[in-house]
Amino acid sequence: MDDGQTPAEADELNPHIAHNARVWNYWLGGKDHYPADREVGDRVFGMFPNIVHVARADRAFLGRAVRHLAGEAGVSQFLDIGTGLPTVDNTHEVAQRVRPESRIVYVDNDPLVLLHARALLSGTPEGVTDYIDADARDPEAILRAAAKTLDFTRPVAVMLLGIMNFVLDVAEAQSVVRRLMAAVPSGSYLALTHPTVELGGEANIEAMRFWNEHARPPIVARTGEEIARFFDGLELLEPGLVSCSRWRPEAVGIGDAPEQVAQYGAVARKP
């Protein structure tokens, strides 16, 4: 019987096939995962133990980036693409804590995330949160739907955390980012993180190969030079493109730096 699902959607809801949203949730200490997700997550952890630090550093980067954007940068609109499963301190919670009137649009095409989307839609009375079921590879559809909530004549922070690594072709991935940033006005921002086999991530090569054979969706790592191209035409904020754990870290002692993780991160402004 045809249930209306595509093969990809069936995979994403299949508890016997590990899926990124659920495995990432497992690494972050969440509860939305199945035995297959935990098994693959543990195998990847065995090959690349720092993956848990990567997941947590990426989440912490989100918090620091959104606090800066909603605070010092004065941004009150966020387009968060590749939302993932709700956890602690989602984008709207961080932004609206700083700027209660913030408007946030989440975008994902994972049916499991859609099932949990209501948890993402409870924000402040002054602000707005919305959820779009769309693919990151279709920026025009994202922008059309987001325009119902966001005012694209005013600055928007485009959040692409750990999502462009699922667009395997580098030219396509760069095109997606260019098209998104072309649609937002001067004074908008791009926040992006991406896995790499640099920065001590060489052990991740085997782990990613295992992932691509046993989990969904497939993933690709990129070099710092390739990731830097996502920011072409934009003005990188200090400290530039760095390990996401070292982007404006908090509570660091003099002469100390957080442990480096194999995930680049940066925030840039559209001039």
Score class of each variant (00 low, 15 high):
G240F: 02
A191P: 07
E39F: 12
D37W: 05
W27P: 05
V94F: 06
G29R: 05
S245L: 03
A57V: 04
D151L: 13
N20R: 10
I205W: 14
E101M: 13
D3Y: 13
V40G: 04
V176H: 12
D42I: 08
D108G: 04
N90Y: 07
E9T: 01
P239I: 14
A117G: 09
A141M: 12
I227G: 00
L241M: 08
A119R: 15
Q96L: 11
S243G: 04
D130K: 14
I205S: 12
G233R: 06
L168D: 05
S175F: 04
N14G: 00
F61K: 01
I132R: 10
A117S: 15
L79Q: 00
P86F: 12
I17A: 11
G253A: 14
L112A: 12
V176T: 11
D108F: 09
A251W: 03
A60Y: 06
M181E: 02
G200C: 11
A207T: 01
P155E: 10
K270S: 08
A21E: 03
A183I: 01
T83D: 07
L62T: 09
P185L: 10
R178G: 03
R269V: 10
A36Q: 01
Y106V: 09
D2L: 12
L160C: 00
D133K: 13
D130T: 14
G63W: 01
R229L: 12
G201S: 12
T91Q: 00
R56S: 09
E12W: 13
R103S: 13
V242F: 02
L143M: 02
G233A: 05
M208I: 11
W247F: 01
V252G: 04
H19T: 15
S122W: 11
T129W: 11
T91A: 09
A191C: 07
R269E: 07
K148D: 15
E213L: 15
L79I: 11
A145K: 12
A117Y: 09
R67N: 12
H116R: 13
V252I: 01
D169A: 08
D80W: 04
L241W: 03
D169N: 08
